[in-house]
Simulated scan of single mutants.
Amino acid sequence: MSYTFRAAGTPIWDPALRVGELYLGQAEAVAALLEVPSGLTPRQDGRCDLEPEEFGTFVQHLLRFYNRGHHAALSHLLRGVVLVSLVLLNRAGGHPVPHDGETLDALLTEATALDRTMSV
């Protein structure tokens, strides 16, 4: 069983059910912490719709928060959400993330490697 993420009705990620549910839960928790909408809408049929513009805004806020890096444990907890979110934003054709240095370069490199492992 899987949990499909879609943008404009097109599947962009089809992870195992628990993986999809975990990512969605983490993204929603982070969105609540940042006080912004995630751009993710879970559906009753076991899929999740991603709205690229709203999700792009979420990712921008997430990256700003992550880059502050005031707490090591928090940074580690956020890293997985950041990486998966960068992959999904790219696949959804969302606006490119503003470039702001070495940290983003490293994250984008890691997200590119992760992308190859995330089934569609």
Rank of each mutant, 00 (worst) to 15 (best):
Val97Ser: 10
Phe5His: 09
Pro96Met: 13
Asp115Glu: 15
Gly25Ile: 04
Pro98Arg: 11
Glu54Cys: 06
Val120Tyr: 14
Pro42Gly: 11
Leu89Pro: 01
Thr112Cys: 01
Ser2Cys: 09
Ser85Phe: 12
Thr109Phe: 14
Gly9Asp: 14
Cys48Val: 04
Leu114Arg: 06
Gly39Gln: 07
Gln60Leu: 08
Val30Gln: 02
Ser38Ile: 00
Ala73Pro: 04
Ala29Gly: 05
Pro96Ala: 15
His95Asn: 13
His76Pro: 04
Leu33Asp: 11
Pro98Glu: 08
Arg18Met: 15
Ala16Ile: 14
Gln60Tyr: 07
Pro15Val: 01
Leu77His: 09
Leu24Gly: 00
Thr109Asp: 14
Thr109Ser: 15
Arg79Ser: 08
Leu88Cys: 05
Gly46Ala: 00
Trp13Tyr: 11
His99Cys: 07
Thr10Asp: 07
Val82Asn: 12
Pro52Gly: 09
Ala72Lys: 10
Asp49Pro: 00
Pro98Val: 01
Glu102Gln: 09
Arg68Glu: 13
Glu51Ala: 04
Asp100Ser: 12
Ser85Pro: 03
Glu110Tyr: 00
Thr41Cys: 00
Val97Leu: 11
Ser2Val: 10
Pro52Thr: 05
Leu74Gln: 13
Ala73Arg: 12
Glu28Met: 09
Leu88Glu: 06
Gly93Trp: 01
Leu83His: 10
Leu104Arg: 07
Arg18Ser: 15
Ile12Val: 13
Leu50Lys: 14
Pro52Ala: 11
Val120Thr: 12
Ala111Arg: 01
His76Ala: 14
Pro15Asn: 03
Asp100Leu: 03
Pro42Gln: 10
Arg6Leu: 09
Leu78Ile: 06
His99Gly: 14
Val59Arg: 03
Gly94Leu: 06
Arg116Met: 12
Leu107Cys: 00
Ala72His: 11
Asp14Cys: 09
Glu110Arg: 03
Arg6Gln: 09
Gly25Cys: 10
Asn90Pro: 04
Gly94Asn: 09
Asp115Met: 10
His99Pro: 08
Tyr3Asp: 05
Gly94Met: 08
Val59Ser: 04
Gln26Ile: 03
Cys48His: 02
